[in-house]
Computed example of a mutant assay.
Amino acid sequence: MAEPFKNMYNEQFLNLFTKDLKLVIPNLEPHAFVSQVMDKEWENRELKQRTAHIATVLKSFLPADYKAAIAKILELLDCIEPRYPHCSKIDDTKFGLLLEYGGILDSYIEQYGLDDYETSVKAIERITQFTSCEFVTHPFIVKYPDAMMAQMLVWSKHEHWGVRRLASEGCRPRLPWAMAIPSLKANPAPILPILENLKNDPARFVRLSVANNLNDIAKDNPEVVVDLVKRWRGESEEVDWVIKHGCRTLLKQGNPEVMKLFGLGSAKNIQIENLRIATPKVKVGDSLEFSFNLSNNSNKNIKIRLEYALYYQKANGTLSKKVCKISEKDYTANSITRITRKHSFKVVTTRKLHPGLHQVAVIINGSEFDKHDFELVE
């Protein structure tokens, strides 16, 4: 079974964290700190509950005045910066060097700094150069929408790639695990100048964030993303990748205008034949195996986005659809291609598996073919 994310906050990490804290809080007692954190409720706390709890304990060891406490946190970052030279460079292999610290410091600012905008924003700008602060920006955008979005626009031109990434990631309307931003879901216009500044960014992690922000926007305002695709397309290879990845939900939905923009037309001359499920009963931990023939009955090559839909059993007995991509390429005129696929049912922390009826269906250029049943068993 996959290790739960919350377990990255363990005794070993806390011992390292308190060792660093003593650099700026010399009288800190590590044992007292760790014992307060790992109390009788510790094992029952989930990821964000753990970071919030550690932040609460941290408050009792920092100065009572918020500005003075933030000064200590920034002093801590100055002390440990020499250990992380890659933080100041564009390094797309080492993102999240201090992921665990970021979760705690984000939570500290969210809990205790929401009423001190200027101090908190300066701290966020510094902290995000070591980790990522997108979760804490959301409550600030909700409370200070105009000021915070203006700040994000300034950050989109920052010299540090981590701050530029925050400018996009921190205003994603549907950022997973974060507070939603209803105003940006309803009207994403304040986000667009930020994405314009970042769509060609030299850092891959920044461009990925732009694509993910576009994908969020597309779920509520598809017409906005379609308009951007029309304006941005062909600007560079990097921008073309951004818009294609940013349209992944619209492509999975078979949005006709987006399909046409990416050269994906009608599937009327395409047939799916001899779909066979090799594993009609799949044990948890094993894989579904299926295969089918894809026939192009046209006299022309046809560009096909080939996907499959997996319908998962939910706890209430209904089915939940997830679309998975197989390929996107040209299929030769008057050809038959045999496709085989495996889909893992290993236990992961991001999806709860429920035994029972499941279904699989093939999708071609957004059109779904007949579903076929299989059973997930313990």
Score class of each variant (00 low, 15 high):
residue 244 K to W: 08
residue 198 L to I: 07
residue 156 S to G: 06
residue 207 R to V: 06
residue 234 G to C: 09
residue 163 V to I: 11
residue 218 A to W: 00
residue 188 P to I: 03
residue 186 A to S: 12
residue 295 S to F: 13
residue 174 R to V: 10
residue 198 L to T: 02
residue 269 N to T: 09
residue 206 V to Y: 01
residue 156 S to R: 00
residue 222 P to L: 11
residue 189 A to G: 09
residue 227 D to A: 15
residue 213 N to T: 11
residue 190 P to Q: 11
residue 212 N to D: 09
residue 288 L to D: 01
residue 262 F to M: 10
residue 281 K to N: 14
residue 271 Q to L: 14
residue 293 N to M: 14
residue 209 S to E: 06
residue 213 N to F: 03
residue 231 R to V: 15
residue 235 E to P: 06
residue 191 I to G: 01
residue 200 N to K: 09
residue 257 E to T: 13
residue 231 R to I: 15
residue 193 P to F: 05
residue 211 A to N: 01
residue 222 P to I: 10
residue 274 N to D: 15
residue 163 V to H: 01
residue 169 E to G: 10
residue 248 R to Y: 09
residue 236 S to D: 12
residue 185 K to W: 07
residue 252 K to S: 10
residue 211 A to L: 04
residue 294 L to H: 05
residue 189 A to W: 06
residue 174 R to Q: 12
residue 201 D to N: 06
residue 240 D to G: 07
residue 206 V to M: 02
residue 267 A to M: 06
residue 261 L to D: 11
residue 242 V to G: 00
residue 228 L to K: 08
residue 171 C to A: 15
residue 292 F to K: 01
residue 289 E to T: 06
residue 291 S to D: 12
residue 277 I to V: 10
residue 186 A to H: 08
residue 255 N to E: 13
residue 246 G to K: 01
residue 210 V to I: 07
